[in-house]
């Protein structure tokens, strides 16, 4: 538990992107997605440009393409939802392979799919290159209220506590012959959830006291080498955003 508190989507590497100050990466990711969402959906060709920008970032961050794509299946539920849209959407309809598809529905599905996918890929890129504590430091430097960073820090600390406690309880259940399936696991989960909360709180209380006794003051101590953002760091970090902004702008021109 005392380890680096890695999150499952983090890919530790030593690259220029990993070394960028976290606040730069958060702002860049956010602005990048804003550009994608602001692009008109009919500007089909422009959407081919965004993956190239992301690809360049992955190359610079030394993230393998397969690593990103495997984790992009996060998005699958949305794909299912989007498939419904052409079938249920309003008129006018077009015939395709014997099916009657709604044209606004098709456009809507394309819109959700492409923008959702690009959003997920951007978030994945941020997550892969930023550790949890770097993210907190980044939020702190972006002037998030101390209250918020305190709760967020404690939350990330306690996630480990809860996961460990839940693991112990699950092991205890299974070793007593529990084999949950379908809806019936809801009952066991729900009954266990109350106990899990109380057990975690009691452990968490001790963790908090330990943190206090080690001098924790409510803010994240800045230990990492990622220093304050220099002008150069901002320029490097925002360069892909500038390309994305040009792409979004050209989308409006050609439509």
């Amino acid at each position: 538990m005392g380890a680096g508190h890695a999150h499952p989507l983090h890919l530790p590497r030593d690259s220029a992107v990993h070394r960028l100050p976290p606040q730069v990466k958060i702002v860049a990711a956010f602005l990048g997605v804003v550009c994608v969402v602001a692009t008109p959906r009919e500007a089909f060709i422009v959407f081919a440009g965004y993956p190239l920008v992301l690809g360049a970032v992955w190359w610079a961050a030394r993230i393998p393409l397969g690593w990103i794509l495997r984790r992009a299946v996060i998005e699958l539920p949305f794909v299912v939802l989007a498939v419904l849209l052409p079938l249920t959407g309003p008129d006018p309809r077009i015939e395709w392979l014997g099916m009657s598809l709604s044209e606004p529905g098709l456009l809507g599905a394309w819109n959700i799919l492409v923008k959702g996918t690009l959003g997920v890929l951007t978030s994945l890129t941020l997550a892969a290159t930023t550790s949890m504590r770097d993210l907190l430091v980044g939020l702190q430097r972006l002037r998030a209220p101390a209250l918020v960073t305190t709760i967020a820090t404690l939350m990330l600390r306690y996630v480990d506590v809860i996961v460990a406690e839940a693991g112990r309880m699950r092991l205890a259940r299974i070793s007593r012959g529990h084999d949950p399936r379908f809806l019936w696991q809801a009952g066991a989960t729900a009954r266990g959830v109350g106990a899990l909360f109380v057990r975690s709180y009691e452990r968490g209380e001790r963790v908090h006291l330990a943190m206090l006794s080690r001098g924790w003051s409510g803010t994240m101590p800045v230990l990492s080498t990622a220093g304050l953002a220099t002008r150069r760091a901002w320029m490097v970090g925002l360069a892909p955003v500038a390309v994305a902004a040009v792409l979004a702008g050209s989308g409006w021109v050609i439509v």
Partner: peptide, 24 residues
């Protein structure tokens, strides 16, 4: 406090777990 708690969960999920869009 509850509002902040839920908002923090959503922000962390969006930033680190690609769960929910950033502009959403």
């Amino acid at each position: 406090v509850g509002t902040l708690c839920i908002a923090i969960v959503l922000v962390v999920q969006a930033l680190l777990f690609a769960d929910g869009g950033l502009t959403a």
